[in-house]
Simulated scan of single mutants.
Amino acid sequence: MSNFHSFPSTPFIRWFVKDNQSLDRDIRLKLLKGPFTSRAALVAAGMNTLLVCSVAVVLHPTLFFISWLVADMVIWIIRWFLLQRFMASGKSSLRYATDLSLLFGLIWAAEIGIGTAGCIISQDPVLQVLACTSAVSMNGAIAMRNQGIPRYAFTQILLTDIPMKLATLFQPEPMLRLLILQAPMYLTGLWVLLNNLNATLTTAYISEAQSTHSATHDKLTGVLNRLGILNLMTASLNSKTHGDSDFCVLCLDLDGFKKINDANGHATGDRVLVSFSEMVTRVVRKGDAVARIGGDEFIVLMPDTDKISASLIAERIIKGLEDYAGKYENYEGLGVSIGITQTSPSEQGSVDQVLSRADVAMYNAKSAGKNCFRFG
């Protein structure tokens, strides 16, 4: 299931999920996804608490237990609605959808804790066993499901556990008060478990991100490699997000690079490639993608643009390289030929065909005298 959750908007809810602020945004979003990833978990939790509440009402049809049953059902319905309508379906039009989902997760935990406390105070051994077993099992599920946000998960556990422990003070069996003595060890163990699970999950996400980055980025320059840009171009051709918005592809090939590389060594050639990629990255727009697809050949993908904008970028790249080469005597003759093609997502064509058109245009630029751009 796709994840459509976002970071919380309110300071109160943000406090519960602000761990790992130094991590990449995508990793932090992945760590936050626990409460939004499984309808099955929500259904199982709802059936569990509904069973305990129903048994309590059957055995003791008091106002407290009837209210507990009603509250449990209402809270579950709201949580299901938020997950189904604003998270799972990807149609989130509610600004505070994430905040509300996390808030009602806390309210749900408090409701379980208060209801469990009522079962203990009732002195009914059946309810005491059922409610305490249910609460402890729910805490384990909370730790596993929300391990990416340990502060939030531990707060849920506290809201579930503390009322249950305090309730032992208001019933006549003194041995049950041993639960209070057990609380520090139990809660410390869960806190350690949560942090260990979180560390393991975080390491896994970081390793995944690094692996993905290595597979799609050029090791020398840090820009995208052939696989990375082909993936983006494929997505652009298949895009339904921007309708029929055109995108432009620029094919760049350095002129005079081989001569400089042969005369000055590969280390100098590498510095030229790195400097050129950095310059191009600075020149293009924030949403554009730069890739080195091999040797001294680069690709720029410009989504939602036209030939005029692409021309301006091409001119800036040519001028930027001229200024760079002018600083070094041994870089004489260094330039760039650029081929540009404009494509619409509605066109029937492949990535290879788009690249081929841009490549032909680039060779036309070389034939026209190099250090210029042509359209294809």
Rank of each mutant, 00 (worst) to 15 (best):
N364K: 15
L232R: 10
L252Y: 13
L127R: 09
A110T: 07
D26Q: 11
L159K: 04
Y96V: 06
G326N: 09
A110R: 09
G140Q: 01
F170D: 03
S38Q: 07
I317T: 13
Y186V: 08
I293D: 00
K258V: 14
R271S: 08
Q342G: 11
D306S: 12
A310D: 06
C248R: 13
S214M: 15
S311D: 14
V136F: 09
R226F: 00
T188Y: 15
M144Q: 11
L102I: 14
P303N: 06
I78V: 15
L187S: 10
G222T: 00
V223F: 12
S275Y: 03
R25E: 13
P184I: 04
A183I: 04
L50W: 02
A88D: 07
S9G: 03
N146C: 13
R25M: 11
V223A: 03
S54G: 13
R25S: 14
F247P: 07
Y331D: 10
G269Q: 13
L254I: 15
S239V: 03
W108D: 03
G369L: 01
W108C: 00
G105M: 02
P163K: 00
M362A: 05
L194C: 08
A209L: 07
S93W: 05
F16C: 06
K370T: 11
V274N: 01
D296A: 08
M138D: 07
S2V: 06
L190S: 10
N198W: 04
V354T: 09
F170M: 03
G335W: 09
V283K: 11
F298G: 04
L181P: 07
S122H: 06
D124F: 12
T281K: 09
D26N: 02
L252Q: 12
F7W: 01
T268N: 00
S356A: 15
A167T: 14
M302K: 04
V351K: 03
I107A: 14
P184N: 05
L106D: 10
A141N: 12
G222L: 01
Y96S: 05
L230T: 15
A143M: 11
A71G: 03
N364L: 13
I121E: 09
Y324Q: 10
S67Y: 00
L127Y: 08
D24C: 06
V192L: 14
A199Y: 00
P61A: 09
N48F: 07
C372N: 14
C248W: 12
